[in-house]
Design a binder for these strands. Structure first.
Lengths: 345, 345
DNA sequence: CTGTTAGCGCGTTCAC
DNA sequence: GTGAACGCGCTAACAG
């Protein structure tokens, strides 16, 4: 320890401030936490002492004493996928004004990975925890449930949440997108998905596709699996061309896949939407830029993150009547990749 | 508090374990921290007690007592931009095996935002801190310097680091890309940049472009500013077409801009690389997918993050002879968007 | 090798 | 309204 021994902005503690302001340590703590039971005069004296000494409260010690750390934990599959990272971005923006910090972990798309991160995080006593999706190991559910803190499951509006779920219906969105392809005159709509992980969001989209097919009395098994990458989308397109020549519409489970397929169409001179109507999912920025622009479903991950922050704040404040199931909805974005007839000028 | 009052996996403390195993609290702490000074026999007894009671150490209390939190702080401009998020992903992967957690913050591309996050983070006593780039407010530098913890500045290999810098030379990479465009036979190479923030990486790329121009005795002022988005790239391309009809090569400061421009070329039927040789920067996944595939510079943000983790671990362990300046290098990725002559078959 | 004790810095009772 | 004292759960230093 010592003067500059990793003590943030100095080794000055609350006792030093108290001495300097000629008050008790308790009083300093009170002004720090905005207690009303302090005279304006003494408050000023304390504030002055804080300024002069450059005092910075030790939030670790506060966390121990108050049994409240001001930290929320967040777990997403990977940080590199913007759709998940932007949820965190929204949470950061919503929580920063309240002095709440976020610790981040990645599950690597695996239940086991998630379990280990949850375990490690709970030992740090966060005030709340956010996890992506609704599929977790039994032990993870148990850990979370008995943690005693608010648990927010995000992105997919599933039944049977651990505590609170904030998201949208992947099933409904996928069904709507599929139905839209059929409504635009397509007769044979395929679906491209992936299955490298136990991911309820992707699984629900597949079910949405199948439901839309069955509602029209059409076969619901025109789907193939690939890897979730641009190249995976291109590969899937080639497979469809080879295997199902009758297909005239494709619903890709992510924009990444759809964009990869669009590029493959460009390379092969296949006209979109004339030959294939194509839609994706997520409304990544690239969806509006690619040629032709991509029809897709928009979620608004940042605002979802902000909503999550709101709920966490309310729960931490102790408000009991917070919704346990919040639907942030989705929006179908219609662009050229899925219109029929000649392209707009 | 109480039995299930937000105490993680239960309210059992180290004293409970000690009692259950019939040893002292210190001994439990020793086995927890892997001290060699424990008999295998007592170690087992303690481990058994931990198991039976479902004890989970309170890392907040440990942090206070040990003056070592096992947390590292990381600040990036925004979470939604993959290039930055993936650095964090690499850090997570490198630090997780050592039980170290990452708290994340975003500066919003502003020095003031960064300063506030740094301030908030230091109060939580992280064991180390990572910040993006080398441009910071004077107060941020001062806070960081006097924090007493390892400070890693990342991404841009600048001079005058606060403590340690890990990255690559944006200047060199940009110069090399520009020179490559000239070497492929282009005579008028423009540069598209943006300036919405005090970003040393982008500024250094501009300087690299200008240096390459001057080395050939060519004008170094064919650059324009736009916003860093697909649409921004498209807009810049239109501006160049209108203003500088002689331009036959464009170095876009990010892949996002370059891809936006490539899409605009597709819309307008402009042949790339025949009309324009184009290159970007970052080697985002989209760069290999777009048509034509994009020549760009690759950094490897994930492995850079792992390198940062390594350095942090070494510094935390107290190793004094850790490099203060680590060049992770870059790689020019040659693809079709910048070759001359007929495109490959 | 092990038990005991004194802090780590702060919030929160209590009396005053 | 304010100060003093105790405790949050753990590590580290000290005896033994």
């Amino acid at each position: 320890m010592g003067i500059a021994g990793k003590n943030g902005a100095g080794a000055v503690r609350i006792a030093d401030v108290a001495r300097h302001a000629d008050v008790g340590a308790g009083t300093v703590s009170r002004v720090l936490n905005g207690s009303p039971n302090v005279t304006a005069q003494t408050r000023e004296r304390v504030m002055a002492a804080i300024q002069e000494l450059g005092y910075v409260p030790n939030l670790v010690a506060r966390g121990l004493a108050a049994n409240r750390t001001g930290v929320v934990a967040a777990i997403i599959p990977v940080l590199g996928y913007a759709q998940h990272s932007e949820v965190i971005q929204g949470m950061l923006e919503g929580l920063k004004p309240y002095g709440i910090t976020v610790m981040i972990g990645s599950s690597g798309y695996s239940e086991e990975g998630e379990e280990r991160v949850v375990e490690a995080f709970l030992a740090r006593r966060p005030d709340a925890i956010y996890v992506t999706g609704g599929r977790h190991s039994a032990r993870t559910r148990e850990l979370l449930k008995s943690s005693g803190i608010p648990v927010i499951e995000g992105s997919n509006l599933h039944d049977n949440p651990i505590d609170t779920v904030i998201g949208y219906s992947n099933f409904d969105a996928a069904r709507k997108l599929t139905a839209r392809l059929f409504a635009s005159g397509r007769k044979h709509v395929a679906h491209v998905t992936f299955s490298t992980d136990p991911n309820d969001r992707i699984a629900d989209r597949l079910e949405g596709y199948r439901a839309a097919c069955r509602e029209l009395g059409l076969p619901d098994d025109l789907f193939i699996e690939t890897t979730n990458s641009f190249e995976g989308g291109a590969k899937a397109l080639r497979t469809i061309l080879d295997s199902w020549p009758e297909v005239d519409g494709i619903f890709f489970v992510t924009d990444v896949l759809a964009v990869g397929a669009l590029h493959e169409c460009q390379r092969r001179g296949i006209a979109v939407p004339e030959h294939f109507a194509i839609c994706g999912f997520d409304d990544l920025p690239i969806a509006a830029s690619v040629v032709p622009a991509l029809t897709t479903a928009r979620i608004g991950p940042v605002s979802m993150g902000r909503k999550i922050a709101e709920v966490i704040l309310a729960r931490i404040k102790g408000e009991a009547d917070v919704d346990k199931r919040i639907d942030v909805g989705f929006q179908i974005i219609e662009r050229e990749s899925a219109v029929l007839g000649p392209k707009p000028p």
